[in-house]
C-alpha cells in the first residue's frame, strides 16, 4: 500500500532528514460512531525505518499517535542516493511499505 505513504528525505549537514506521512485512521477503539457503536481499534503499531536495508529506527506505537501519522527523524552518515525505507504494520496485520532515495 505504497499510495498511503508519502516520504521525503533531504540532506541537512551530515545527516539526512526524513519525513514520513502515512494515511491511516488510527482508531483508538474508544470512540463511538453515529449509531452509538464502538469503532473497533485500528492503528499502526509497529514501524521500522531502514537505511540501505539496515534498521535505523525500530518503533512501537500505541493509539495515541494522531490520525494520518507523521514521523520525522534524522540519520547520520547517509549520503545522496542512499535508500530510506519504512515498513509499518497495523493491528489488523495490514502492511504499509515505502521507500525514498535521499536527495
Amino acid at each position: 500500500m505504497a499510495d498511503a505513504m508519502k516520504m521525503r528525505a533531504t540532506m541537512d549537514g551530515d545527516a539526512v532528514d526524513v519525513k514520513v506521512l502515512i494515511q491511516h485512521p488510527m482508531d483508538t477503539g474508544l470512540l463511538k460512531d453515529k449509531n452509538d457503536k464502538l469503532i473497533p481499534a485500528h492503528f499502526i503499531n509497529q514501524v521500522v525505518a531502514t537505511l540501505n536495508g539496515k534498521t535505523v529506527i525500530d518503533s512501537q506505537w500505541g493509539t495515541g499517535i494522531a490520525k494520518n501519522p507523521f514521523i520525522g527523524f534524522r540519520i547520520k552518515g547517509a549520503k545522496p542516493g542512499d535508500k530510506v525505507g519504512i515498513n509499518a504494520v497495523d493491528n489488523l496485520g495490514t502492511k504499509y511499505d515505502g521507500e525514498v532515495v535521499v536527495a
Binding site: T28, L30, T55, Q60, G62, I65, F70, I71, G72, F73
Partner: peptide, 25 residues
C-alpha cells in the same frame, strides 16, 4: 492523562540521531 498514557517507543541504531518528530493525540 490519556486513556492509554503510552504513545510510542522508538529504538535508535546504525546512525539514527536521537530525535523524533511526530503528532500525538
Amino acid at each position: 492523562k490519556n486513556p492509554a498514557p503510552m504513545i510510542a517507543d522508538f529504538a535508535f541504531s546504525n546512525g539514527a540521531e536521537p530525535y523524533i518528530s511526530t503528532r500525538i493525540k
